[in-house]
Design a binder for these strands. Sequence first.
DNA 1: TTGGACTTACGATAGTTTTAGTATTAAAGC
DNA 2: GCTTTAATACTAAAACTATCGTAAGTCCAA
Lengths: 133, 133
Amino acid sequence: MVRQKKKSEFLTEVELEFMSVVWETGGGTVRDILAELNKAQERAYTSVATVLKIMEQKGFLTSERQERSLVYRPSIRKVDYQKTSLRNLSSKLFNDTPAALVARLVEDEDVTNEMLEEIKALLDERLGEENGS
Amino acid sequence: MVRQKKKSEFLTEVELEFMSVVWETGGGTVRDILAELNKAQERAYTSVATVLKIMEQKGFLTSERQERSLVYRPSIRKVDYQKTSLRNLSSKLFNDTPAALVARLVEDEDVTNEMLEEIKALLDERLGEENGS
DNA sequence: TTGGACTTACGATAGTTTTAGTATTAAAGC
DNA sequence: GCTTTAATACTAAAACTATCGTAAGTCCAA
């Protein structure tokens, strides 16, 4: 009997890097993903294969055999993971108040006014669309 | 002479929980911090002492002898750690575009309109104060 | 002055993460 | 058919995390 691993809802550092490639490319074989990853940092083929297998066990990826190779694909959407991560950050570090989170973002001097305007537009969009509907 | 480890710039899960207590209370002895922590989850005295010692080595805390005990205090401000974390999240998961981050926050249906208005007010505040318009 | 009561230091252990070598299997080519 | 190639499976080691027990030192009171 194989014991089911308790799956953390979150990716590790390395897993996130892998997942980013998979989200970006839509997935592929170990060799495909390795090629992308190695643009940033040299890694052995088997290292990548191992991590991908683990990520599948944890439920972040699915695999399907194609010819001789396994093709890995994301099983969670990036936007959903983004939301999960934001909720986590908000709860762990911002007392569950998203406004406090944005406050820190806003007072970061590296965030340009242009970005702020962009953010404001997003807010108006959602606020507007709910009042108008 | 204590060797400074200068490890990861980030706290682990447990360390963050500890740090939250230290930020909240301003710090204290192992026993003080243990008491706070154990409201949420039972932990042994020595576990807490060990983690605090490690956090000091990593540079998140300082300690000062007071009577027979060490008193731990934060050596980084919460707001700074919040900023660091946000930058990290933004870079790892949102392509370094804070607007995309806020976009996810905004489309989260659990975030109320009231919160959104609050966020918008923050934006206006900073935009207003910089260009006077 | 000696034995609790506390304290920090040290180290052990179990589990996870990251990386990669070796074994095995399957296809492909000669 | 046999060999080369390429893929996954298996195994493992090193680093890090989380937890806690024991050792050793210090203060105080009986």
